Structure formats: C-alpha cells, structure tokens
Computed example of a mutant assay.
Amino acid sequence: MILVNEETKAIVQGITGKQGRFHTKEMLKYGTNIVAGTSPGKAGQKVEDIPVYNSIEEIKRDFPDINASIIFIPAPFVKDAAFEAISELDLVVIITEHIPIHDTMEIVEYAKEHDTILIGPNTPGIITPGVGKLGIMPTHIFNKGHIGLVSRSGTLTYEIASQISDDGYGISTGVGIGGDPVTGQNFIDILKRFENDPETEQIVMLGEIGGVPEVKAAKYAEEHLSKPIVSFIAGVSAPLGKRMGHAGAIIEGTDGTAENKKELLRQHGVHVADTPKDIVKIIEELQ
C-alpha cells in the first residue's frame, strides 16, 4: 500500500459543505481515520461526530499528529486552503475541479517547496482497500490485493477496478492523479512508490489522449522499474483538436493520440490493452 495506511490521520477541509458532509460519512464508514475538519466560522459544530475547527492551526492544538487532508472547497477558495494544508501536513488531496490553472501552478510549486505530497486537483482521490480512503470513489468495487492502480480518469478507474475485482484480483492502492494539465503527483511519482511497495506486484496505468505523461512514465519505467506495467489509453475515437472530458485531454497532430501513445508504450516495454477487458487477460498472463 502507498500514501494511505494505518498511520494516516486525516482532516477534511470544507467538512460542513454538502460534499464534505457526504464524503466524510462515506470515508468514516470505510474505516478512514478522520479526526477533525475545518470550516471557518463554524468551529464547535460536529459532522458525523467529527469536531469542526476554524483552521488547521487550531486542529493541531488538539490533534498534533494529523498528517493528511482532503479538500472539498469551492474552486475560488482552494488556493488558500491548500497553502494552509501544505504548510502543516505531509499529504494533501484536492478533490475540487475547475481550479484556475495559475492557482494550481502556485499550489503545486508550494507543495514542492514544502516537500508535501499533493494529489490532484480534479481527482477521485486515493484508496487503500481494507485500510481507508481519502477520496470519493465507491468502495465496493475495490477488493484488497496486489495490483497498484494509477489513473488520470475517475470514471475509468472505477470501471477497471470493478473488472479487476470481478475477476478475482485486488488492488494494493488506487490513485487518481487528476485530470487537469497540471497536477501534484504525476504517473512517474506514483510508479516510483509502487515499485518500492512490497505489497504491489503489478501496476495498471490508465491514461487518455492528450499530452505525453504516459509515455514519459513508460520511458522511466523501462530504465528504473522491475514490476510489470499494464496500460490502457482511453480516447481511440477522439477527433483531432477537440477537447474530450478532462482539460488535459486534447490532441494536436499525431502527438497525444491514443494509437500513438499505445505504440510508444509498447516500444518501452509496457503491456498495452486494446480494451478495458484485455487488462485482466494480460494480468492473468503475467501471473
């Protein structure tokens, strides 16, 4: 497992909002160790019996060992919340989408300066089956196992996780790096963590059209990783120049097309699945 483990002690920023309340309940139900939440001006309230504070600084007076945060705050206010969390904690997950790109760039740079692990923005989060989640993913489709799952797409993550579980396999940790052009952790960052994780035996990397992050990850893996990687690239039928879903999912010329990426991934030793169903078939062959 990576990122979320038995040592994770998390807070929820924006805990009193609709999304914050709902997902706090779901994360607690799954066993995630959430100890407090923030909502400026609402200190003293409780959400699912979790105490609400005005700031992280106030939380740390009562819970000095908190180390992670998940952010459910409207896009215009995320930067301030993220800066607060990054300066105080080891792991920050930003669920919020539609954050201005300049804000995201500042957040990512700030996280690097503070050596804080940043997941997102625009991510479904992280789940370590049997331990907990800092995210919004449905938990019933994630069986515990030895396959590390990393993806740009939340919906695709759910589809593949469900197939993996239905076919009798399981996941060590599932990570959505986020669908925006700029994110905290990238594919290479997560592949490194899976390579060093004794519970992860194989890695599934789910990509999509646009940019070249999957290809960069494949080049890195060819030189530095020992564990097999299975990949699927969504967007085979996407027309040139048209944005498809995520802000990062746009192709120009031949660079970034699904077919181009698939060929390059194969050249660098990645096992490429042509359809989602082929992922499990390849996993079985690698057993």
Rank of each mutant, 00 (worst) to 15 (best):
F83M: 05
K25I: 08
A234F: 04
I15V: 08
Q163T: 04
E214M: 02
I203T: 10
V150C: 03
I282H: 07
A81E: 14
Q45Y: 12
S69Q: 04
E109D: 13
V150G: 01
G207A: 03
E285G: 14
I2F: 10
R61G: 07
P213M: 01
V47H: 07
I127N: 02
P121I: 03
K9Q: 09
Q287C: 07
L286R: 09
E195P: 03
P40W: 06
A82T: 13
N67H: 03
M105Q: 02
V78P: 10
H271R: 05
A161F: 07
I171P: 06
I250D: 11
D255A: 15
H268L: 02
H146Q: 13
V270C: 02
Y110S: 07
L265C: 02
T155I: 05
M205C: 09
L265G: 03
N33A: 09
I95N: 05
M27R: 00
D167Y: 14
G120C: 03
I119F: 04
A43H: 07
E113I: 12
G148Y: 10
E109W: 11
G145E: 05
G130P: 00
D62C: 08
G269D: 11
A221S: 10
Y220L: 00
V12N: 08
G241E: 14
L149D: 09
L118R: 13
P121W: 06
K262D: 14
F72G: 06
E259I: 11
A111W: 07
G145L: 01
G248C: 09
D278T: 01
Q287P: 02
P129Q: 05
P213H: 11
D166C: 02
F63W: 01
L156V: 09
D278N: 05
D180N: 08
K262I: 12
P239M: 05
I250C: 00
I251Q: 15
V270T: 06
V230M: 08
G37M: 04
Q13D: 13
S172G: 04
D80W: 04
G210T: 12
F63V: 09
S172Q: 10
I70H: 02
D80F: 08
G14S: 06
D49N: 15
Y30F: 07
P213N: 13
I164N: 05
G170H: 01
G31H: 04
G256T: 11
T116S: 12
V175I: 14
A273C: 05
M205H: 08
T24M: 00
I279M: 11
